[in-house]
Amino acid sequence: MAQKRYNVTGMSCEHCAASITEEVSDVPGVSEVVVDLAANAVTVRGADLDDELVRAAIVEAGYGVGEPTAA
């Protein structure tokens, strides 16, 4: 199972975390989404993760996102 961490800008509350979790969970291959508000990061786990789709889902939720890093 792959795991990637994304730095996300604009998150400030549990509503932000819920919005991102909902959008990213719908991406094919994603099995788990963990939002860390204090670190401004989202960790995504799953099989065959498509970085472009994950990043697009975060943007769709209304937030900025950087390139993924190994988590």
Rank of each mutant, 00 (worst) to 15 (best):
S25V: 01
D36N: 15
A41Q: 15
S12H: 15
A38N: 15
C13P: 06
A61K: 01
H15R: 11
G66K: 07
T9W: 01
V54N: 04
G10M: 12
G46D: 01
G10Q: 11
S31M: 15
D48I: 04
L37C: 08
V30Y: 08
P28G: 10
D48F: 06
A39F: 13
A17M: 09
A47Y: 05
A61E: 00
L37E: 07
I20S: 05
T69F: 04
R55P: 07
I58L: 09
R45L: 07
A39L: 12
E14Y: 02
A18M: 00
D48G: 12
A41F: 13
H15F: 14
T9E: 09
I20G: 06
V65C: 12
V8A: 11
L53D: 14
V59L: 05
E22D: 08
R45W: 00
E52L: 12
E52F: 08
A38M: 15
D48P: 05
V59E: 04
V34L: 14
V35I: 13
K4N: 11
E22L: 00
E14C: 00
V35P: 06
A41Y: 07
S19W: 01
Y6S: 03
D51F: 02
V54E: 03
V8E: 02
T9H: 06
R55L: 03
G46R: 09
